Simulated scan of single mutants.
Amino acid sequence: MSHDTFNLDKNQLIQHAFNQMEQHIQDAGYSLRQKLALTCRILFDNGHDSGLAGQITARMEQPGTFLTQRLGLGFDEISAGNLLLVDENLQVLEGDGMANPANRFHAWVYRARPDVRCIIHTHAVHTAALSMLEVPLQISHMDNCVLYEDVAFLPKWPGVPVGNEEGELIASALGNKRALLLAHHGLLVACGSIEEACLLALAFERAARMHLLAASAGKIEPIDPELGREAHDWILRAQRSAAAFAYYARRSLKQPHNADCL
């Protein structure tokens, strides 16, 4: 492509940017275990702390198995070395301790969605507050468009999600979307990579906070659907996810309390 880009239309410039990303942005080189542990620390450092509530899992190559954190440890205590490998029945195959019994619904989502490699469920405070209103999350700002038309809504709280009924309900409510707001509960993100899931969980909580702030001041106005979809696809690129995840990882690893993460 010519270095003179002033005669190109927007679609050509977007494609030009994507081509450059593929050339210049590389994976940071973390192992899958390290990525999952980093995700726990990143989310803790960015408002997703809720004691021992919430689970983060990553699908493994052996069918019906996934990595998750040990019950009894907070997100800020998870490291690559203390993650558990479990099967769909939550039996521990590698590691010490037990998985959170609420991980059962993760297995239902993995069964329903072969494309999903990572699931994040948290009770981040702004998302949890929004969930109490029993209204869908509104995406009406450029920064949040990674979630545009990609957030489902479960308006009924089924209770503690440790039964198979809750797993079926949550997997069905999620459908083919990447995210789900669960009324009176929290958020669920299900993505094709750990990096993407981490970033969408961060975006979800920020969007919920912005929703509450904007709604307290007036009526939230919708954005143009075509532009929302354009922004969604612009942000949701593997190279952008890799770069953003690496940034958040660097930021968290600078904190002394995360020195043991990797």
Rank of each mutant, 00 (worst) to 15 (best):
S2A: 12
H3A: 15
D4I: 11
K10W: 13
K10R: 14
I14S: 03
I14P: 00
Q20I: 14
Q20R: 12
M21T: 05
Q23C: 08
D27N: 13
A28N: 10
Q34D: 12
A37R: 01
L38F: 06
L38V: 07
T39Y: 03
C40N: 14
R41T: 04
I42T: 06
D45H: 14
N46W: 07
N46Y: 09
D49M: 11
S50L: 05
L52Q: 14
L52H: 12
A53M: 11
G54N: 06
T57Y: 03
R59F: 06
M60Y: 10
M60Q: 15
Q62N: 13
T68L: 13
L73T: 06
L73M: 13
L73R: 09
G74Y: 03
D76K: 10
G81W: 03
L85W: 01
L85D: 00
D87F: 07
N89I: 02
Q91M: 10
Q91I: 11
Q91N: 14
V92N: 00
G97V: 08
M98Q: 10
N100C: 09
P101I: 09
A102V: 04
N103L: 07
H106T: 06
A107N: 03
R111K: 15
P114Y: 08
D115R: 11
D115S: 10
R117E: 12
T122Q: 02
H123W: 08
A124H: 05
V125H: 15
V125W: 10
T127Q: 01
A129D: 05
L130I: 07
M132E: 13
M132P: 00
M132F: 04
V135I: 09
V135C: 03
P136Q: 07
I139M: 10
S140W: 06
S140T: 13
M142S: 08
D143I: 04
C145R: 00
E149A: 08
F153Q: 10
L154W: 00
L154R: 00
K156D: 11
W157Q: 10
P158F: 10
V160N: 12
V160K: 09
P161Q: 09
G163N: 12
E168G: 08
A173G: 14
A173E: 09
L174T: 05
N176D: 15
A179C: 15
L182A: 05
A183R: 05
L187M: 15
A190R: 02
C191T: 04
I194V: 15
E196S: 15
L200I: 07
R206S: 12
H211T: 04
H211S: 09
G218P: 05
E221M: 14
E221K: 15
E221T: 15
E221V: 15
P222F: 03
D224C: 14
E230W: 08
A231S: 08
A231R: 00
H232V: 01
I235V: 12
L236I: 06
R237M: 04
A242G: 02
A243V: 02
A244L: 12
Y248P: 00
A249F: 00
S252I: 05
L253R: 07
P256V: 06
N258Q: 03
D260E: 14
L262A: 13
L262G: 09
